[in-house]
Write a protein that binds this DNA or RNA. Sequence first.
DNA 1: GCCAACGTTGGC
DNA 2: GCCAACGTTGGC
Length: 151
Amino acid sequence: MSYWLMKSEPEEVSIDDALAMPAIPWFGVRNYQARNFMRDAMRVGDGVLFYHSSCAEPSIAGVAEVASTAYPDDTQFDSASKYFDAKSTPETPRWMLVDIKALRKTRLLGLAEMRTCDALSDMLVLKKGSRLSITPVTSDEWAEVMRLLDQ
DNA sequence: GCCAACGTTGGC
DNA sequence: GCCAACGTTGGC
């Protein structure tokens, strides 16, 4: 069992949006490293920190889990979508995704608070210049975040 | 809106 | 395959 942090812009898909659905396809990832995590490393049942990015309060906003293995992201074939990729074909899809099942909304755990915690000092999302929208989280970091969320 | 960081593109 | 130019991300 592995753990992940996954960024979503709440104006596009918030934790509330995700909770309103049985599961949500994590569409729109257009970075190879993030894609490879979904395609190669994620397993059904892996833990996910649902993170709100590019918003007033960038923060962990909920807990979710991986709910499917990887399959092609349909938005890459949709010319009307902002995620359209003209170089991708259904025969050899470039972008894959997994379904994510939101489990619960949490209090907002912001970056500043996370930075005050020594146990989280190596979290990739806290690194300067970190832009990767999906990052692995260690089991120790996961446990610490769960502890903080309960406070 | 600024800008640092970093990924991608394309000429050579 | 190098690397400069360019585009994007995302916190601030």
